[in-house]
Design a protein around this nucleic acid. Structure first.
Length: 687
RNA sequence: GGCGAGGUAGCUCAGCUGGUUAGAGCGCAGGAUUCAUAAUCCUGAGGUCGAGAGUUCAAGUCUCUCUCUCGCUACCA
C-alpha cells in the first residue's frame, strides 16, 4: 500500500439484530470508524464507510419462538432501533444495510458458488435425522428413543444415560424429536467445510510480513500488537476446518440442488454483508462499486471489537483470497473491551449504558458522549467507563476548557470590537509566533494520530490547541491591554479567533455538532481540513451569537444514571426456553440422593474441574464436577449436596465420575449448591 | 491446562527499534488573575514502572520464573 491510497473502504462490524446497541459497541467499532471517516472526508479523500445489521442465525429464531413472533419481526425492529441509536450519536455511515436483503442473499449465494467451483470447500455428506414438523435437521441431543442395549426408553441420540452406552442417533429404537415429538426421518445432509489448514503458509506471510502474493501489501508494524498476537496464536495452534453451512432455516439458503433447509454460516454470511452494502451504496449513488473492493489502490480497513479478530484476520481473508476478485484488509484496528463501573458490560444483567437511553436522557448532547468515549477508547487494552468520570470530563474539559475558551473569545470580541473580528497589524511577538506555529502544526499532529488509529492521542492534540488558546489569553490579558494599546489588543484577539476557528476544524471529527456551531458563528463553516491556518477569520467578519456550548453534568444526573445500571432485570430474565415435556416415568428413572462431600481436590490440567469424594449413606464414590472456578476445595468439603446417583459413569480428564452434583446456575454466570434443608441425611431419596 | 494481550502517578491512559533527572489529561496543594460557565494560568507534591532473578557500561523498554486481570481454547454428565 502506498503512503496515500487512492481510496479507502471502511467497515464496522455488523451489529447482531438481537438487541440494542450500548456504549461498549460504540467505543469498540463505531466511534473509531466514525472519527476516521469524518477525518478522511474533511481531507477530501475518497472514502466509503459501510455497515449493516447482521440478521441471521439461530439466536434470532430461538428468540422469535420464545416471544411467539417471527425472526423477521425481530430483525425489523432492531434494524430500525439500532439505526436510530447510531444516528442519535451522530455515527454517520455512508450506507447502512442488512443481511436479510434480497441483494445480500443473491450476492452471498453467488460468492458461495464461486468458492464451490474453485474447490475451496470440502464436502461431507452423512445421514442425519430430520424433523418433518419443525422442518429442520436435528442435532444428536435433540433426539430421544429407546436404548438398544438396556431398553431404557429415554436415551439420547448421543448417549443412553441409564446404561452409559455411547450411541449414534440411528441406533435408537423408535426415535422421536424432542422439539416436536414427531418421528424423525433419515435424510442425507451435506455440509461444506473450509479447510483452513491449506492456507497457513500465505496467511502467516500476509500477517507477519504484510506480503501477499509476493508483493508488499501493508505495513504489519501498523497493526496493533494484540491483533497480530491473537492471529499468531491461532495459526501456531493449527487451523481447523470450519463448517460454512448450517442446517437452519433462517439465513441465506445454500444455493445448491438438494440443500433445502441449509443456510450459509455466519462466518460467510456476515462479512460478505460488507460487500453487499458497498454495492447497494454505489447503486444508490450511481457510481461503480468495484474499485472499492477490487482496485489495488484501495485501502480496506475493518473496525471491530477484539472478539472478532480471528474472523476478520483469518477466515474472511481466506474466503476473499480463494474467491480471488477481492481485496484483503490492510488493517484491522480492533479495539479491546470497555468495562462499566467496575464490572464488564452485560446485556442480560442490564449492566450497560444503552446508546438510545443516553440519547433520550441527554437530548442533543451526543458530542459529550463522543468526547468521553474517544478519551477512554480501549485502543490497546480494556478500559473503563464510569459516570463520575463522564461528569468530570464533560465539566472540566469540555465545559471549562473548550466551552469557556470559546465563550471568552466571543465575549471579548463583543465587548471590545463591537462583535466583529478585529484585523491584525502583522507585528507578531515571539509568543504570538509560537501560537501561530502551533496552529499550523496541530492539524498535522491530529491527522497523523488519526491515521495511525490513535484516537485518544489525536483528541489530546486537538484539545492542546484550545489549552494553548486559554493560556494565551490569560497571559496576554487583552482586557487590560485594550486600555493602553488597542492595536495590540486587536492582534491578540485576532489570533485567539484563529485558534477558535482551527479548533473547530480539528475537533470536527470528535465533536461534529459543537464544531459546526463554532464555525457557523465565525463564518468559517464547512472548511476542509487542509484549510486550517492562521488566517481563517477575516477582519471585520461579524461574529454570530454563541450560547453556552456545554452544560455541566450535575451530581443528580450522575446518580440517576448509576441507578439505572442493573435495574429492572428481575422478573424478565433472559432464560433458556423450557425443554420439551417429559414424563413421570422419565423422572422416576433418575435416582436423586442427598450426599455429603468428604474430600475435594482440583483435577490437574483442568481449570474447571473438582474431584469430589461423596458419602451417599450406602457407599462412597468419586464425582467430578465442573465447579472449580466458583468454589475452592475447602469450601465444598462437608457440604450436603443433591446428587444424581444413577448417572452412567463417565471418564472425565482421566477420572471416572460416578454421578453428578446438581447446581443452580445463576444469571450472572455463577453457581450455587442446591442444599437440602437441615435434617436431611446422606442417602435420603429426593422425589 | 495451552495460547495471546495487559498489569506505569489517587483516576483514565502514553511511553517506537534499551541510554541524560519516567510522561499527558483529570484530581489534589499553594500561588496569580478576573475577559469568561467559581471559569483560566503558573508552580508543586505524588510512581521501588505487578514480584523476583538474570543479560548489559546502561532496562517500564531484552531473557527466565512467579503472580493478577482480560480474551480465545480444552475439560465442565
Amino acid at each position: 500500500m502506498s503512503e496515500q491510497p487512492k481510496r479507502t473502504l471502511v467497515t464496522s462490524a455488523l451489529p447482531y439484530a438481537n438487541g440494542p446497541i450500548h456504549i461498549g459497541h460504540i467505543a469498540g467499532a463505531y466511534l473509531p470508524a466514525d472519527l476516521y471517516v469524518r477525518y478522511l472526508r474533511l481531507k477530501k479523500r475518497d472514502v466509503v464507510w459501510v455497515c449493516g445489521s447482521d440478521e441471521h442465525g439461530a439466536a434470532i429464531t430461538l428468540r422469535a419462538r420464545k416471544e411467539n413472533t417471527t425472526p423477521r419481526a425481530i430483525v425489523d425492529q432492531y434494524h430500525e432501533e439500532m439505526q436510530a441509536a447510531f444516528a442519535g450519536l451522530d455515527i454517520a455511515f455512508d450506507h447502512y444495510d442488512r443481511t436479510s436483503s434480497k441483494e445480500h442473499h443473491d450476492f452471498a449465494q453467488g460468492f458461495f458458488l464461486d468458492l464451490l467451483k474453485k474447490g475451496a470447500f470440502t464436502e461431507e455428506t452423512r445421514q442425519q435425522f430430520y424433523d418433518p414438523e419443525e422442518q429442520q435437521f436435528l442435532a444428536d441431543r435433540y433426539i430421544q428413543g429407546t436404548c438398544p442395549k438396556c431398553a431404557h426408553d429415554a436415551a439420547y441420540g448421543d448417549q443412553c444415560e441409564k446404561c452409559g452406552s455411547a450411541l449414534s442417533p440411528e441406533d435408537l429404537v423408535n426415535p422421536r424429536s424432542t422439539l416436536s415429538g414427531a418421528a424423525p426421518e433419515m435424510r442425507e445432509t451435506t455440509l461444506w467445510y473450509l479447510p483452513m489448514d491449506r492456507h497457513e503458509r500465505w496467511l502467516r506471510e500476509y500477517l507477519e510480513s504484510g506480503v501477499l502474493d509476493g508483493a508488499g501489501h501493508h505495513d504489519p508494524k501498523a497493526w496493533k500488537a494484540h491483533v497480530l498476537g491473537q492471529c499468531r496464536s491461532w495459526i501456531d495452534g493449527g487451523l481447523q476446518s470450519r463448517a460454512m453451512t448450517r442446517d437452519l432455516d433462517w439465513g441465506v439458503p445454500v444455493p445448491v440442488e438438494g440443500a433445502e433447509g441449509k443456510v450459509l454460516y455466519v462466518w460467510l454470511d456476515a462479512p460478505l454483508g460488507y460487500i453487499t452494502a458497498t454495492r447497494n451504496w454505489a447503486q444508490k449513488n450511481g457510481v461503480d462499486w468495484k474499485p472499492y473492493w477490487q482496485d489495488k489502490d484501495t485501502q480496506l480497513v475493518h473496525f471491530i471489537g477484539k472478539d472478532n479478530i480471528v474472523f476478520h484476520c483469518i477466515i474472511f481473508p481466506i474466503l476473499l483470497k480463494e474467491q480471488g476478485d477481492y481485496l484483503l484488509p490492510h488493517n484491522v484496528p480492533a479495539n479491546e473491551f470497555m468495562n462499566l463501573e467496575g464490572d464488564k458490560i452485560s446485556t442480560s444483567r442490564n449492566w450497560a449504558v444503552w446508546a438510545q437511553d443516553y440519547v433520550d436522557d441527554f437530548n442533543g448532547r451526543s458530542d459529550e458522549m463522543r468526547y468521553v468515549l474517544a478519551s477512554i477508547m480501549p485502543e490497546q487494552r480494556d478500559s473503563e467507563f464510569t459516570w463520575p468520570d463522564f461528569q468530570a470530563r464533560v465539566n472540566n474539559e469540555l465545559a471549562d476548557v473548550l466551552g469557556n475558551f470559546v465563550n471568552r473569545v466571543f465575549v471579548l470580541s463583543g465587548k471590545f470590537h463591537d462583535g466583529k473580528a478585529p484585523g491584525a497589524s502583522g507585528n507578531w511577538t515571539a509568543v504570538d509566533q509560537a501560537l501561530r506555529d502551533l496552529i499550523t502544526a496541530t492539524p498535522g499532529l491530529v491527522g497523523e494520530a488519526i491515521e495511525r488509529y490513535r484516537f485518544r492521542d489525536a483528541l489530546q492534540h486537538a484539545m492542546g490547541l484550545v489549552r494553548a488558546g486559554n493560556k494565551y489569553l490569560t497571559e496576554e490579558e487583552p482586557w487590560k491591554v485594550v486600555k493602553t494599546d488597542p492595536d495590540r489588543a486587536a492582534d491578540i484577539l485576532h489570533l485567539a479567533l484563529q485558534v477558535t476557528a482551527n479548533a473547530a476544524i480539528v475537533l470536527a471529527p470528535f465533536l461534529p455538532r459543537t464544531a459546526a456551531r463554532i464555525a457557523a458563528a465565525l463564518g468559517t463553516s464547512d472548511l476542509p481540513w487542509d484549510a486550517a491556518g492562521v488566517a481563517l477569520v477575516a477582519a471585520g467578519q461579524p461574529l454570530g451569537s454563541l450560547p453556552i456550548l456545554f452544560e455541566k453534568i450535575t451530581d443528580e444526573q450522575v446518580a440517576e444514571q448509576q441507578g439505572k445500571l442493573g435495574a429492572g432485570v428481575e422478573g424478565m430474565r433472559d432464560v433458556e426456553p423450557e425443554k420439551a415435556q417429559t414424563t413421570f416415568d422419565d423422572f422416576q428413572a433418575m435416582d436423586l440422593r442427598v450426599a455429603e462431600v468428604l474430600t475435594a481436590e482440583k483435577v490437574k490440567g483442568a481449570d474447571k474441574l473438582l474431584q469430589l469424594t461423596v458419602r451417599t449413606g450406602y457407599d462412597e464414590r468419586t464425582v467430578v464436577s465442573g465447579i472449580a472456578e466458583h468454589f475452592s476445595p475447602e469450601e465444598v468439603v462437608g457440604r450436603k449436596v443433591m446428587l444424581l446417583a444413577n448417572l452412567a459413569p463417565r471418564k472425565i480428564r482421566g477420572v471416572v465420575s460416578q454421578g453428578m452434583v446438581l447446581m443452580a446456575s445463576t444469571e450472572d454466570g455463577g453457581l450455587r449448591f442446591v442444599t437440602p434443608e437441615e435434617g436431611a441425611e446422606p442417602g435420603d431419596i429426593i422425589r
